[in-house]
Amino acid sequence: PTPPYVKWAESLHSLLDDQEGIHLFRMFLRQEACGDVLDFWFACSGFRKLEAAEGNEEKKVKLAKAIYKKYILDNSGIVSRQIKPATKSFIRDCVAKLHVDPAMFDQAQTEIQAAMEENTYPVFLKSDIYLEYT
């Protein structure tokens, strides 16, 4: 079978679908002082999963607020800087109105994913961390 680290180079999704690949990518991102980008990407996926579950309305609102405060509120943050102003405004309005929309972080996650695919992911595949591992 194809070794996992070869699959990781096929696409960002292949990398993020493997615990070892995530661990290595996270180490690399932390070296580059942008580990929050990956955590935010997973937080958006986790939020969608929680949203799909029945009940927990209070927890969903609390989580939406926590994600917003941690990653988006501070415009100088590594995540917030890579999300379009209109996308941030939409999320801010949802949080302010306590109107927790299941898809409220989808656009932001798409923009962060595009930024990873364009920048950090290709650089990771050329990084010492990845090359030493392979």
């Binding site: 609390k62 989580l63 926590a66 994600i67």
Partner: peptide
């Protein structure tokens, strides 16, 4: 703040792939 960070960590972990 702790509870918010805990909630975030739980959310991030829930989205991670299971060990193959």
């Amino acid at each position: 703040i702790d509870s918010e960070d805990d909630l975030l960590q739980e959310c991030i972990s829930s989205a991670m792939p299971k060990k193959k």
